[in-house]
Design a protein around this nucleic acid. Structure first.
Length: 583
DNA sequence: GCCGTTTTCGGCCCGACTGTTTTCAGTCG
């Protein structure tokens, strides 16, 4: 049935991009804002779905049953999936110029101003805008003045210099910590907190949001400008200052009174959708919720802490990682929020490399570092031979390596060293070690490192075949994506999940910052499909063992509890789980 | 365009900030 449609199924990403483009173009046309929002929301639903919309269409499911998708969006998505085209998008594109969407991306330019530029000066591209700004023609358009013109020029120059819209979470962390320390040293400052994507542990961060509570004369916004990493000021007022750091990341600093700190933290932590949903929930009860607090009429009934805010509207406290409008508000109302995994629950790291293959530190050093983390066990998982670039071990070298690991284990009793390997899954789905070696291992971490561009059918078969081998215990970095660098390989993920659940194969949440693989969305789908998960760092040097915090963060974003994650268990229990695979 | 224990029409979050069109529209978060 699925084959009745186009050979290359239309991806969720492509559907979402089409809906977003319609939203952008309609916005420029000054279409009803709620209609625009409906397209944007639809795009988010598609992008956030673990299931392929193309599959759902192929199975004859009614897309309009999904929240945020109505009959109109459902029809358009089906058309796109079936034909690869979307007539409505072509139509809207046909009446607008292609460069206009880029103009919308400039700070200070919204749909109305973009429209005014087009109607007034015929500007439809960044180049035309730049030329008009240079000749001071923009200030002649109604609604524009010399200041706006100067700001546009600054934005354009900035655009030429830096196409870096975001950083991976761990790159934001030292900046957040340094900024926090800088602000905390200012006399009169009583509290500093980071909010935004950073606080929600999103895999990437495109802006640092910092809240500061201070006495009236602390002049905290001015002091931010003294921070050595500050490159330039974008905007500034008594309550808010926005700067760009030397590395290109922007920082928004909000001055907040202590009595509103919780409400402001809530509002700036986001996500926007979560905040909107909680606000709607409050308003149904006759309560008004904004950055200052929760109000019944003129009376403030909450605002000092987030917990107080949630409770005042009849919800349990919702952890930041859950605030994505993915059902957490309903769960909080029903008292059904999960008790999320914590770093303290983790008893060991199951994916660690050493200098024996492509790691930096010796096995001894990695084991010591793992012991210092308080772990009960650590698995040394070297690459196998076919992973040539990683100096992978062939059968003979792996045998000698395992001898040495056994020796190392005997010589210390701080931590149990597990014998494992990151076994390459070859093109035909077989594992890259002979059975006699695989039998010596406590378990394996198996992964794809080659032929990323197979189409979905053979790639899926390859992985299923690998899972048929009882030696495959954990499928590592299951989608192969590298954030901003490489898309996930094409695969029928639902079949992978079904097979993993049936065969007791665990799936990894790989905590390398540019992997975060599985993603939050897919990890949640895996859990829902009954698949056991592992959070592991894939550390190649001892400091990288700290990536566990990021991996646990992604697991929390996936609603996982300690129960869902295998490496919260003792080795004895873990061994029992892996033994289910090998009769 | 979506949605409904105020259900098929009429809402949909809203206040702060900015620049400019001097009394408020547009943008942002």
């Amino acid at each position: 049935m699925i084959d009745a449609f186009a050979k290359e199924p239309v991806s969720n990403g492509r559907i979402a991009a089409a809906l977003e483009e319609i939203a952008d173009l309609l916005e420029i046309e000054d279409e009803n804002a709620f209609r625009v929002r409906a397209y944007r929301h639809g795009a988010r639903v598609v992008r956030g779905s673990a299931r392929g919309f193309a599959d759902m269409v192929a199975l004859g499911e009614d897309l309009a049953d999904l929240p945020g998708i109505g009959t109109s969006l459902a029809e358009k998505i089906e058309e796109l999936v079936r034909t690869g085209r979307l007539a409505y998008l072509d139509q809207v594109e046909g009446r607008t110029a292609p460069g206009l969407r880029e103009l919308l991306g400039l700070p200070g330019l919204g749909p109305r101003k973009v429209k005014a530029l087009r109607d007034g000066l015929g500007i439809t591209t960044l180049e035309q805008l730049e030329s008009a700004v240079m000749r001071s023609r923009v200030r002649g358009v109604p609604g524009f003045g010399a200041k706006t013109e100067a700001r546009i020029l600054a934005s354009l120059e900035h655009l030429h210099r830096r196409p870096v819209p975001h950083v991976l979470w761990p790159a934001a962390e030292p900046l957040v910590l340094a900024l926090t320390r800088h602000m905390e040293r200012i006399p009169g400052v009583t509290r500093v907190a980071a909010a935004g994507d950073y606080r929600r542990l999103r895999e990437t961060v495109d802006r640092i949001e910092l809240l500061v509570a201070a006495g009236r004369d602390a002049r905290a916004t001015e002091r931010l400008l003294e921070y050595e990493g500050t490159d330039r000021v974008v905007s500034r007022s008594a309550k808010r200052v926005k700067v760009v750091l030397r590395n290109g990341l922007s920082v928004d600093l909000h001055m907040v009174p202590a009595r509103s700190f919780g409400a402001a933290l809530f509002a700036h932590t986001g996500s926007d959708d979560h905040v909107a949903t909680v606000r709607r929930f409050a308003s149904k009860q006759g309560l008004a919720l904004d950055e200052r607090g929760v109000f019944r009429g003129d009376a403030r009934i909450a605002g000092r802490t987030e917990r107080e805010l949630y409770e005042s509207v009849g919800l349990g406290y919702i952890e930041p990682e859950l605030r994505e409008d993915r059902g957490e508000v309903e769960a909080a109302r029903a008292g059904a929020l999960p008790e999320l995994l914590t770093v303290a629950d983790i008893r060991g790291d199951l994916h660690v490399h050493t200098s024996v293959t492509n790691g930096r530190d010796s096995p001894r050093a990695m084991v010591d570092a793992a012991a210092e983390h308080g772990y009960e066990y650590v698995a040394i998982t070297e690459h196998t031979a076919s992973a040539r670039v990683s100096h992978g071990l062939d059968a003979e070298r792996m045998a000698r390596h395992l001898d040495r690991i056994e020796l190392l284990n005997d010589r210390q009793d701080r931590i149990r060293i597990l014998k494992s390997a990151e076994v390459d899954i070859l093109k035909d789905g077989s594992l890259d070690l002979p059975r006699r070696i695989l039998d010596r291992l406590d378990f394996t971490v198996s992964a794809i490192h080659s032929y990323f561009d197979l189409s979905a059918a053979p790639q899926t078969e390859r992985i299923l075949r690998a899972m048929d081998d009882p030696h495959l215990s954990i499928l590592a970095h299951p989608t192969g994506r590298l954030i901003d660098r490489r898309d996930p390989y094409a695969v029928d993920f639902e079949r992978i999940l079904a097979a993993a659940a049936e065969r007791h194969c665990a799936l990894e949440i790989n905590a390398q910052p540019e992997r975060c693989d599985l993603s939050d969305v897919l990890a949640r789908a895996a859990r829902d499909a009954g698949v056991a998960l592992v959070v592991a760092t894939d550390a190649h040097r001892k400091e990288q063992l700290d990536f566990m915090r990021l991996g646990v963060g992604q697991a929390r974003r996936a609603w996982l509890t300690a129960h869902d994650v295998l490496n919260t268990r003792s080795w004895k229990d873990l061994e029992r789980f892996f033994a289910q695979r090998r009769r």
